[in-house]
């Protein structure tokens, strides 16, 4: 699966990127993770609050950093 982390580079976005890496690694999820920082690209997903998580072009989290458990649940679904 293809995971994208959207955010212009604020501390919360970095936190979320690290969390996603950790969750993917610990659960052996087969996924590529990319960070999207360009504001125009971010806007294409129709979100207004960063950070956000996009899985296979679908927004699953926006505007907050979820807990590791919540993120794991969402990714395994």
């Amino acid at each position: 699966m293809e995971i994208k982390i959207l955010g212009p580079g604020c501390p919360k976005c970095k936190m979320l990127l690290k969390l996603t890496h950790d969750v993917v690694e610990q659960n052996g999820i087969n996924a590529s993770i990319t960070k999207v920082e360009d504001i125009i690209d971010i806007m294409k997903y129709g979100i207004m609050s960063t950070p956000a998580v996009v899985v296979d072009e679908k927004v699953i989290i926006k505007g907050r950093v979820p807990s590791a458990d919540e993120l794991k649940e969402l990714l395994l679904k």
Binding site: C10, K12, I42, M43, M48
Partner: peptide, 17 residues
């Protein structure tokens, strides 16, 4: 509404758009 200054731009764009 939850707001942090790093979200100011996406929010501005989203509103104006």
């Amino acid at each position: 509404t939850p707001f942090c200054s790093c979200s100011a731009i996406p929010l501005f764009l989203g509103f104006v758009e």
